[in-house]
Design a protein around this nucleic acid. Structure first.
Length: 316
RNA sequence: CGCGGAGUAGAGCAGUCAGGUAGCUCGUCGGGCUCAUAACCCGAAGGACGGGGGUUCGAAUCCUUCCUCCGCAA
């Protein structure tokens, strides 16, 4: 069974590696073209390409895969595994693999179809998530499911941390799935028509913190946006990236101040108490922040440098 | 040449424009007050001011050059 793997970001590297280490024959990797990265705009190959090259696997980087179907076919694969590839496949591509095209999806179906299942789970305060292996069809993540594992989301887990866990989970699961496909003994489960949901790509606008919301929602936003695109608060024209936060436990004095404070107001100027900000139902403590041009630091350090003062307000 | 910020004590910052003994807050250590404390009071240690070169009687500060870190945008 000859396998072609289509994937792009870090998330896809672990599955690719696991497939390779499990002894499957990977005849080619398809990934996105190199893109300019960072301040200098240096052309950088995607993580999957780097990995594939170190293992000597042929790499294909079509700018538009639908215009290079014959190149894909030339790889001679029986089966295509997709994992966060980043391009929509056409029927011609799907038809190029006798044993089908299978997708590793980092979320439970049908509720979390779409581009941002991991982040969206955290933003929604879900308690569990999972990885699904499904048939890739023309519609958006609507194919029949081959297998799925569900895991709990940890209380303080960030998008980056959960993503890494799911990546390894997906790696294990795809290897199992390939075993099933090879043996030919498997059953497909159509997705329920109830509770279908589509989550779209996350943009920076969604990452702005709204302190008029409940503490739990604010914290979920911060978790779900770490490490990218990163939640941020704005005050006096400056933006402050927020990487981590927790529910504030206030002193009696702070409780008093909080009662009359407006949403987004800084409740204390004592570095030891931390950067406390009023929300709808209490206060949130921003524990890891980064101002533009500065390093990441604790909320206490940020307060100590006096870049924000007690009573200053982050706009909602 | 995409736009911009920053390198000063263990940490976060001021001081740089108008060169002249190195400052603030936090932490650390010692002492005091207190039933007690993350609170308060007193004291101490700790810095070749990112590196090189230049101007000057004298440079954290002015000129020049190199290095490093970071935000935005893509």
């Amino acid at each position: 069974m000859k396998i072609v793997f289509a994937g792009t970001p870090d998330f896809a590297v672990a599955p690719l590696q696991k497939i390779k280490e499990s002894g499957f024959d990977i005849v080619g990797v398809i990934t996105q073209i190199d893109k300019p990265q960072g301040r200098k705009g240096i052309l950088t190959p995607p993580p999957v390409k780097k990995a594939a090259e170190t293992w000597g696997i042929p790499v294909l980087q079509p700018e538009k895969i639908k215009e290079h179907v014959e190149d894909v076919q030339a790889l001679g694969g029986d089966l295509l595994v997709t994992c966060a590839y980043g391009q929509i496949l056409t029927q011609a591509v799907l038809d190029s693999f006798p044993m089908g095209v299978w997708n590793i999806h980092a979320g439970l179906l049908p509720k979390y179809r779409g581009a941002s299942p991991i982040q969206s789970c955290i933003l929604n305060g879900e308690k569990t998530t999972g990885v699904s292996i499904m048939k890739t069809e023309l519609g958006l993540d609507c194919g029949d499911v081959l297998c799925v594992v569900e895991i709990p989301i940890l209380e303080t887990e960030t998008y980056g941390e959960l993503s890494e866990r799911l990546s390894h989970l997906g790696a294990d699961l795809i290897v199992q799935a390939l075993g099933l496909l090879q043996s030919g003994t498997y059953t497909l489960t159509p997705q329920s028509e109830e509770g279908v949901g589509v989550v779209r790509k996350i943009n920076k606008e969604q990452a702005k913190i709204d302190f008029s919301k409940p503490v739990a929602e604010v914290i979920n936003l911060i978790r779900g946006m770490n490490p990218a695109p990163v939640a941020y608060a704005v005050s006096e024209g400056n933006s402050l990236n927020v990487y981590r936060a927790e529910r504030a436990v206030m002193t009696a004095e702070e409780e008093e101040i909080c009662k009359t404070a407006v949403y987004g107001e800084v409740l204390t100027d004592k570095p030891k108490r931390g950067l406390l900000v009023k929300c709808q139902d209490g206060a949130v403590k921003l524990t890891e922040v980064q101002a533009s041009g500065g390093k990441r630091m604790s909320g206490g350090d940020f307060l100590n440098g006096r870049k924000v003062k007690k009573g200053q307000v982050f706009v909602c």
